[in-house]
Design a protein around this nucleic acid. Sequence first.
DNA 1: CAGGTCAGTTCTAAATTAGAACTTACGGTA
DNA 2: TACCGTAAGTTCTAATTTAGAACTGACCTG
Lengths: 154, 154
Amino acid sequence: MKWTELRQQTCPVARGLSVVGDRWTLLVLRDCFFGIRRFEQFQERLGITRHVLADRLRTLESGGLLRREAYQDRPVRHEYRLTDAGRAFFPTLVSLMDWADTHVPSETGHSVTLVSTDTGDPIRPLLVDQTSGAPVTVRNTRALAQGEPSDKAG
Amino acid sequence: MKWTELRQQTCPVARGLSVVGDRWTLLVLRDCFFGIRRFEQFQERLGITRHVLADRLRTLESGGLLRREAYQDRPVRHEYRLTDAGRAFFPTLVSLMDWADTHVPSETGHSVTLVSTDTGDPIRPLLVDQTSGAPVTVRNTRALAQGEPSDKAG
DNA sequence: CAGGTCAGTTCTAAATTAGAACTTACGGTA
DNA sequence: TACCGTAAGTTCTAATTTAGAACTGACCTG
């Protein structure tokens, strides 16, 4: 399976990965949420090769997560800004951050804390069902393919 | 930056990606949540090359998400089962699925629906703060590096 | 005009992946 | 005993991707 095939898969996870299923893509995206917008800044912070950075920015742009925007003429200079679809990715990134914070050990201890803009209190992320408020876990959910009446999924 | 360097980063997103920052790794993990456990099954379902599959299973095992377990002797045959850390990754995968379902268009329409095991009702995932119940968005949260008093992060 | 900045592109060598065949260790069948 | 099949890999070569570094325009400043 190649990247192009991934995009045409039925499973949304596969389709999602066709855009963000690469470490550099996700690190670029993370930096976007930290307010980074320009080529040189990404390159310096990430230590990514310029070639790959250019490629990943194109991927994110064509995937609809970033918008390339001129911030000056003469010479034309562009910056990359999050779109609504890009901002909508935030919970996924936070989920990953939260998981890694707990399950991928760090020798430096806690490193990044998410706090509320309002209260300044630390945030403990939890994925719930919007209507019932119940936490989403392997145990209490089941994945159904369209048209599939019942099948094991946990 | 190489995969080994990624693991030593301060940022939990980078550390997380040192384990799951690869499309195949995440597709293998997805199939684990669908109940797949054996080498041949993964290989057939994913169309991944056997070489890469063996490598990704090792990555997931050494990352603590999967446990390699003998299910028979003579000849010894192993299967790969989710650990607690692996199961804890579920919300992240669901977040990704939910994001992609909305933001990466599919020609086949909705494909996978998550339903409650109890009620059978469809689940609408939402990331909230565990204590306040408020949704986690770019706007109402700020990332603080350890020791960093205040900085832009959205 | 020399030097610097920004956003890339181009180059070669190294690493990774695809695709297919091969290996090991069995168990069953003729 | 020889042959077939299964499971879980390993090994092989060729193609693709990445790393690392230098180069390219198009401008700006002194």
